[in-house]
Computed example of a mutant assay.
Amino acid sequence: MHASPLTVRPFQRHDVTDMLRLMRGLAIFEGYIDKFGVTEADLVEHGLGETPRFGVLIAELCGRTVGIAVHYVIPWTYDLKPTLVLKELFVEETARSSGAGAALIAALKRYAARIGAPRINWTVLASNDAAKRFYRREGGSHDAIWEPWTMPVEDVPGGCEG
């Protein structure tokens, strides 16, 4: 029996260059590359340091890194259980029909179950119908109750100035 050409595993220091390449690919795809500021040093410091701020699953196809699932955990919410948040899921275009995305989602589900998280939350670019179809096939659904909102934080004065 030979090994599958598709594997998923947690990222390690030697993955940082490929991870940054894929994150930049997502930034180009979603149209924010001009604001993209992540460096390899940032990934090492914040993802592989003593207290990582995020985790990453790496999808490899025949030994080549083709996909990432960047995630973090909200330690507890209304039900006193953690929520796993999928921040970025990206599979390079040449590997989109390889099963890498589904394998990343399956690995995320296993991780969520292992940490006791009853749910995985994420956002989808409104115009990305292909992603919406993919997530539905994987068991996801649009949250009809909650809407995503955002608020820029600009020079907010601090203290009790009067």
Score class of each variant (00 low, 15 high):
residue 123 T to D: 15
residue 129 D to N: 05
residue 62 C to A: 15
residue 105 I to W: 02
residue 106 A to V: 09
residue 68 I to P: 12
residue 66 V to T: 12
residue 63 G to P: 15
residue 41 A to E: 15
residue 99 G to N: 10
residue 112 A to E: 14
residue 95 A to F: 15
residue 72 Y to V: 10
residue 131 A to I: 08
residue 33 I to Y: 14
residue 123 T to E: 13
residue 76 W to V: 10
residue 86 L to H: 02
residue 71 H to K: 04
residue 55 G to K: 01
residue 78 Y to D: 13
residue 80 L to F: 00
residue 29 F to C: 09
residue 81 K to H: 03
residue 74 I to H: 12
residue 76 W to H: 10
residue 122 W to D: 03
residue 91 V to T: 09
residue 122 W to Y: 10
residue 37 G to M: 11
residue 72 Y to A: 00
residue 98 S to Q: 08
residue 53 R to Y: 12
residue 122 W to G: 09
residue 43 L to K: 00
residue 40 E to L: 02
residue 94 T to Y: 00
residue 71 H to F: 14
residue 52 P to G: 00
residue 78 Y to H: 10
residue 67 G to L: 01
residue 118 P to L: 05
residue 89 L to D: 10
residue 107 A to G: 00
residue 124 V to E: 08
residue 129 D to I: 05
residue 117 A to L: 10
residue 78 Y to K: 10
residue 52 P to K: 00
residue 38 V to W: 12
residue 114 R to P: 06
residue 95 A to H: 13
residue 66 V to L: 04
residue 36 F to D: 11
residue 56 V to Y: 13
residue 53 R to M: 13
residue 27 A to L: 12
residue 62 C to N: 14
residue 37 G to A: 04
residue 98 S to E: 14
residue 42 D to C: 03
residue 90 F to A: 04
residue 28 I to A: 08
residue 29 F to G: 04
residue 123 T to G: 01
residue 82 P to E: 02
residue 70 V to S: 12
residue 32 Y to M: 02
residue 80 L to K: 03
residue 104 L to M: 03
residue 43 L to D: 05
residue 111 Y to C: 01
residue 93 E to S: 15
residue 122 W to Q: 08
residue 41 A to Q: 14
residue 97 S to H: 09
residue 107 A to P: 05
residue 66 V to E: 09
residue 34 D to K: 00
